[in-house]
């Protein structure tokens, strides 16, 4: 009982008063300067963030993926290569990208690739059977699996894809005829598995598995 009264007294003393004539004091509390400082700091941060985002959106990175890259390529492509380009976009660009850059540590680039620019029989055989195993392109080693396209695409389609790839993104090499692709099909008619990486290609076509030590090979590649 006394405890209850004590509690009541406590409330009255802390809460102010229960007096009906309680004076509502006109305390004027302005906006604390800290709040204004926070607002200003955040506004500045927001403007900078949005401005840098705009820069990001407007800059043109060297390696572009998606439709943007597609647009810029089309200027360089003439009419007779358009089939090859279309087939490349449908069958190859998911991995090798529209601009032939590949994907770092996963898919080798086609732009400047020794294998793309080698004797026509090399790229034709690669597209026909695919690759499974280590392969070194432009100084990096890849351990991926390239699908077998021999069953999906006919000789003319493979030839026009390769002609496009060998003459895009700075590549310059001879166009490839459908007859050459057909010839490779006959030559490797017994083959049922993909090429076991750069080593198997070296064994079959004599193209070195690594590009580093041999300057002479490099010149022979460039002669095409």
């Amino acid at each position: 009982m006394t405890q209850k009264r004590k509690a009541e007294r406590r409330i009255k003393s802390v809460a102010g008063t229960s007096n009906k004539n309680f004076d509502p004091h006109e305390s004027y509390n302005p906006i604390p300067w800290q709040v204004i400082a926070i607002a200003l700091a955040l506004a500045a941060w927001g403007i900078i963030t949005l401005a840098t985002t705009r820069e990001m959106a407007e800059s043109e990175p060297e390696v572009t993926q998606g439709t943007g890259a597609d647009e810029r390529l089309s200027k360089a492509v003439d009419a007779e290569m358009s089939d090859g380009r279309q087939l490349f976009v449908t069958n190859c660009s998911t991995c090798h990208q529209n601009n032939g850059s590949g994907i770092e540590a996963a898919v080798p680039p086609l732009a400047g690739s020794r294998y793309v620019l080698a004797e026509p029989e090399v790229p034709a055989s690669i597209v026909l059977f695919g690759i499974q195993g280590e392969i070194e392109v432009a100084g990096d080693t890849y351990r991926g699996r390239m699908p077998t396209f021999g069953n999906e695409l006919n000789d003319e389609q493979i030839a026009s894809i390769l002609s496009y790839v060998r003459n895009s993104w700075g590549n310059q090499a001879s166009a490839i005829e459908a007859g050459l692709v057909a010839e490779q099909r006959r030559r490797f008619a017994e083959r049922t598995t993909p090429w076991a990486g750069g080593a198997a290609l070296a064994e079959t076509f004599g193209i070195p598995a690594t590009s580093r030590p041999t300057a002479s090979v490099a010149t022979s590649e460039e002669s095409h």
């Binding site: 409330i11 809460a15 102010g16 008063t17 229960s18 007096n19 309680f22 509502p24 305390s27």
Partner: peptide, 24 residues
Amino acid sequence: TESDARTVFGDEEGGKLDDPTSPH
């Protein structure tokens, strides 16, 4: 003004605990 903040107290003056669940 701060007196507008006292609108919650209605016609009363405030300054005391108002809680229907508290015996105090």
